[in-house]
Design a binder for these strands. Structure first.
Lengths: 216, 216
DNA sequence: TCAGCAATAATTTGATCAAAAGTTCAGGGC
DNA sequence: GCCCTGAACTTTTGATCAAATTATTGCTGA
């Protein structure tokens, strides 16, 4: 019999959980992490926690210091530049490809998510904003049928998640803008090139926001 | 007291070992892997083997099927295109940056490695070729002072390693050429743009080689 | 012959524990 | 005061084992 729910192993669940915590800024950059501590706060054993942490360090979301200490890495201008470069290669390409497979139902969903983004900005809900923004982008990227590119994009988001939270926390959501509308307009008429450009602009602007905040 | 040799944990050692096995084609694409089997062949316990495998799956070097089975993924045209795109963004950039930090000693080392490459090609030593070629590229990339880009490049090499081996095994090393000389010439005169272009050509040609082989 | 099904075998998974490694901090010598 | 030393404490690491899950085999009946 084929079960409807294929039971996920716990280390997978923990991985996803911690991944979200990193993406949505539950950790401060530079914050040290212990395997025990994590296992305890999540309420699980140490073995699956270990495996989840290994995966996340492999993805660059966490770093292991030479002392075996684990922490969430802080962003620097130097690292930001590298992330920039790859994001601007990968994500517009994903958007471009997504445009070819985007169905009315997807546009509906994307509109819903974009409204959530705007709403969170207005209310000043940072966590909500980060979450909705992530979901908007990765629902789009999920349409692209490009696993490898999408996974690379995810590792890059994992690297900037903690810092984004800090920046938003410092300057609030008031100054946040995006190019989701342009992307949606382009998607509606199936214009891949325009979708690509909208996402590229979205990224450029987002990174610029982070960069400016760090210069102060 | 600060020890000269900081003892690496075993899971780290195993990770590096299996990584090399993948990079240099000791696994056939599609080959299933068991955690027990790996631990046994390496001659170690199952716990560190597990962690090493998690890291490698996180890097895309291995995939876990829905049945929890683990295997080394086969390349397809679809995946190759994605890898292409990112490699051509990341690796020429690494080469470019490396040119700025390249010292005479580094050029010496790169020359040595390039000779090893040529030698392996002439003798038909596939494993030797794969190893020397990897070392040439990543010694160069190591000069770039760009951790993030280098790590991304590594995950991409991990994805094509097994297939490269198959292709070389099928068509021999006779048809292999590269653009290492051009890169070295450019590095000697500190010409970053030329170095970048040489590496870009090297990648384009390598990928074309794989692609052609797969079309037959 | 072959599908269906139960029993067996193999593997993964997660908890637990001992050993190794690292950190912290109090106390003593300069 | 300041730095070193070492003991107590914390954390990571790897082995082991039991439970859960999945694959495989062999059997039965049409």
């Amino acid at each position: 019999m084929n079960e409807l729910v294929t039971k996920k192993p716990e280390h997978e669940t923990i991985y996803l959980q911690v991944k979200e915590m990193i993406l949505f800024g539950e950790f401060i950059p530079g914050q040290p992490l212990t395997i025990h501590g994590l296992a305890e706060t999540i309420g699980t054993g140490v073995t699956p926690a270990r495996e989840a942490i290994r995966r996340l360090t492999a993805e660059g979301a966490l770093v292991t210091l030479e002392n075996r200490r684990i922490e969430v890495p802080a962003i620097t201008e130097h690292r930001l530049k590298q992330i920039d470069l790859v994001r601007l290669t990968v994500e517009p390409e994903l958007a471009d490809r997504a445009a070819f497979h985007c169905k009315p139902k997807d546009i509906e969903e994307l509109e819903r998510l974009d409204q959530l983004v705007d709403q969170s900005i207005q209310v000043g809900d940072i966590r909500g904003y980060l979450e909705a923004n992530y979901q908007f982008h990765f629902h789009l990227y999920g349409l692209a049928n490009a696993q490898i590119l999408r996974r690379i994009a995810e590792t890059l988001w994992l690297r900037i998640g903690p810092s984004l939270r800090v920046v938003c926390g410092r300057y609030g959501t008031a100054n946040l803008t995006d190019h989701h509308r342009e992307a949606l307009d382009a998607l509606r008429i199936g214009d891949a090139a325009r979708t690509r450009e909208a996402i590229a602009q979205d990224i450029r602007q987002g990174m610029e926001f982070v960069r400016q905040s760090y210069e102060n």
